[in-house]
Amino acid sequence: MAQDKQTGQYYFPHGSRLPFFGSASLFVLMAGAAATLNGASIGVWVLGVGFLLLCALFFFWFGEVIRENQAGALFYARQLSVPWLGGDGAKAVTGLLWPDFEASWPSNGPGALSPRDNGSYEIIPAFGLPAINTALLLTSGLTITIAHHAMKMGNRGMLKIFLALTFLLGFTFLGVQAHEYGEAYREHGLQLGTGIYGSTFFMLTGFHGLHVTVGAIMLVVIWLRCMKGHFTPHQHFAFEAVAWYWHFVDVVWLGLCRGSASSWQALHRDRRQYRRGQDRADAIPVPALRHQAVLRAKRPESLPRGLLR
């Protein structure tokens, strides 16, 4: 709901069928996903229908919001603040919970999952393609800022060009990432199932990629709306919201990169330790071991393997 500045009146949307429709389509989507995961053959179809319904929902919902917006209702959520974001507590927590933690874990997964015979894999270094990708994403942060300035100056030509540039950079990023995934799977032996490194790598970058995809689609929509002349230099909240989102995706990537760079170093160091640890594998019952955290970190060999499947 939004308030009209002059009259102090609020705008109410009328009753709407969309929320129920949306919930129902999400239900279909999830039931379909569950059925697919459980191996039911109709699962995929249900999933597909759910997905189509969801697309339809987005189409209608945003369409309605845009219509209302054009009709003069102002939407805002600017005062939403997220004070708890930021701050790097990870170190402190690790130090507290596992003071003697050394990352010398078996990180190559339940062996057989790697395509290589010995279950080994290589990790993705933080330079090379990832560095190029970082540059792409950073540049896109710049172009969208230029677009924003152009919008404020009323320079529609610049706006359109730099907005288009932004989502093109975004899609290029995704292309490079897809290529990198392919290499990881085929050549480095690094897969989702190759132990905790693979799991973490693909989950983090994968979910990031998902957000980039969503962001790039939103940029396209905003670009189309710019073409239709929906915004004015003073009224373009939708544009700003998408720009925020894009910057957010950008910043998260920097965090990921830093994280993966340091874990890359850590892994190289730790593998050595891990090998050292292997030499001591038969030393389990030595009473000198003082701490279960040490026990955990240093003695993977004593583990019963293949617990889950």
Binding site: L37, W105, P106, S107, N108, G109, P110, L113, Q191, L192, G193, T194, G195, I196, Y197, G198, S199, T200, F202, M203, R296, P300, L303, R305, G306, L307, L308
Partner: peptide, 21 residues
């Protein structure tokens, strides 16, 4: 979600054999 990927997509977040916990 991590449980889900451990169950269906072979990740090892909570599986000691793959370095998880």
């Amino acid at each position: 979600t991590m449980l889900l990927t451990d169950y269906y997509f072979h990740t090892s977040f909570f599986n000691a054999a793959g370095g998880g916990d």
